[in-house]
């Protein structure tokens, strides 16, 4: 009987932890791209998500995002920028460069092929 009660308590705690861990509100810290004289670059590490998941770019400066996929999961093997018509395969443990059109300011979402993982590029004037 005692064990059964303990199991219920543990279950409730576990469910609470899952809710807190996955649904809790978290600050999304944007990372600014490195600005060179003519271009700007940023590197996104793909491992169980995009890190950083928000990249801030300056408008009008040609931008290159380097994606490096460490994750072996087929879930993350493609990266899709809906607004730019980009749907690229990311070779595992290799750099893959994607050029971003920064002529228009705005927020451009990107996601994995199944749209389960998300990130965004913010082009600011």
């Amino acid at each position: 009987m005692m064990i059964k009660i303990i199991v219920v308590i543990v279950a409730v705690v576990l469910i609470g932890l899952i809710a807190w861990w996955f649904f809790g509100k978290r600050q999304d810290k944007g990372v600014e791209a490195t600005l060179n004289s003519k271009t700007q670059t940023a590197t996104v590490s793909v491992n169980g998500g995009y890190n950083p998941s928000t990249i801030v770019l300056k408008q009008g400066v040609p931008a290159k995002l380097t994606f490096n996929r460490k994750d072996a999961s087929s879930c993350l093997e493609r990266v899709v920028f809906e607004d730019f018509g980009i749907n690229d395969f990311l070779p595992q443990n290799e750099d893959h460069v994607i050029e971003i059109d920064t002529t228009k300011a705005g927020e451009y979402d990107f996601a994995c092929g199944m749209n389960m993982f998300h990130g965004k590029v913010m082009v600011k004037p």
């Binding site: 996955f22 978290r26 491992n47 169980g48 072996a72 993350l76």
Partner: peptide
């Protein structure tokens, strides 16, 4: 590995 990496990012997937 992928599940653990996702977990650290507060994500869960298949």
């Amino acid at each position: 590995e992928s599940a653990w990496a996702s977990f650290k990012n507060h994500h869960a997937n298949m």
